[in-house]
């Protein structure tokens, strides 16, 4: 029972981390290795607004997420756009940006255990005899909300449809009058905001530390590969698989093995089913 409850929470957390990465890759084929940095940046910005400037919590959250979106858009518009299509350069450039941001924070003194965000609602309740705090339930609710929102957004809005069109075939989308660069900026902004949202929701459960940036990036990538890169339905499913696998290893083997589970999941997926759970044939060709 405990495993089911915490497994679900962990899985939704993973899905939240991974959605931004999956969305950006799915639409513009850019592996955004600065994803983890955006996650941490949002956490710190919120902390600055909240603690240093004494703003309202809800207000600082909204502001921080918007700033994350703007940063994402800037990264694309001024840097990644120049190396678009050169996959090696895309990886290296975005990874370098991420590193610069994260290590910059570390240098700026943002390290140690002192930076925390408050939980949204204090309190604990019991399912059976297992204590669950309210915030963790909120994580699940928000996660479900985000997935539903994305689903509706990509199916029923003009912008969402344009993004889907670009995800399927960029050149065809170009011919239909979809400006692919603008869409990529939008995708990057949305992806960054999702990453920021994940940070806001998940960071109150722990400290804001720079190492989180690397962890989040790696887990997001693991989820996306297992789910099939670019398919965010697959990403959600894969989040549940890896989420439960992690909780099971933590319970039966020890907390150190969490990362190993992610790597094993990736390697197993790549050997058994290279296109991921929901990858398409085309992607398989590109990958193997």
């Amino acid at each position: 029972m405990e495993i089911i409850i915490y497994g679900t929470i962990n899985s939704v957390a993973l899905a939240l981390m991974a959605l931004g990465f999956a969305l950006v890759y799915g639409i513009s084929r850019i592996p955004n290795f600065a994803h983890g940095a955006l996650y941490v940046i949002t956490g710190f910005i919120t902390w600055i607004f909240l603690r240093a400037l004494n703003l309202n919590y809800a207000f600082s959250i909204v502001l921080a997420i918007i700033i994350a979106g703007i940063i994402g858009a800037f990264i694309y518009q001024f840097i990644l756009i120049r190396v678009r299509g050169m996959s090696i350069s895309e990886i290296i450039a975005s990874y370098a940006i991420g590193l610069a941001i994260l290590e910059g924070f570390r240098w700026g003194g943002f390290k140690g255990m002192t930076y925390t965000l408050p939980v949204f609602i204090e309190g604990t309740f019991f399912i059976g005899d297992i204590p669950v705090d309210v915030h963790r339930t909120l994580v699940v609710i928000i996660g479900a909300g985000v997935v539903t929102f994305l689903w509706l957004f990509t199916r029923y809005t003009r912008l969402g449809l344009a993004l889907r069109g670009m995800a399927q075939d960029e050149r065809a989308a170009l011919m239909l009058g979809i400006d692919s660069d603008r869409m990529a900026v939008v995708a990057m902004a949305i992806g960054s905001m999702l990453s920021g949202l994940a940070a806001i929701v998940l960071l109150p459960l722990g400290n804001i530390v720079v190492e989180k940036g690397y962890d989040v990036l790696i887990q997001a990538i693991a989820v996306c590969i297992v789910g099939g890169l670019g398919s965010w339905v697959g990403a959600v499913l894969a989040a549940f698989i890896i989420g439960f696998a992690q909780i099971l290893t933590v319970v039966y083997l020890g907390a150190h093995f969490q990362m190993v589970v992610a790597l094993l999941a990736i390697i197993l997926t790549l050997i058994l089913r290279p296109s991921g759970l929901f990858g398409r044939q085309k992607e398989l060709e590109e990958r193997v």
Partner: peptide, 17 residues
């Protein structure tokens, strides 16, 4: 057998793991 992004991602994880 992996190419491009995929190989990069996996090799990124090896030292950490």
């Amino acid at each position: 057998p992996l190419r491009g992004v995929y190989f990069a991602i996996v090799t990124l994880m090896y030292p950490l793991a």
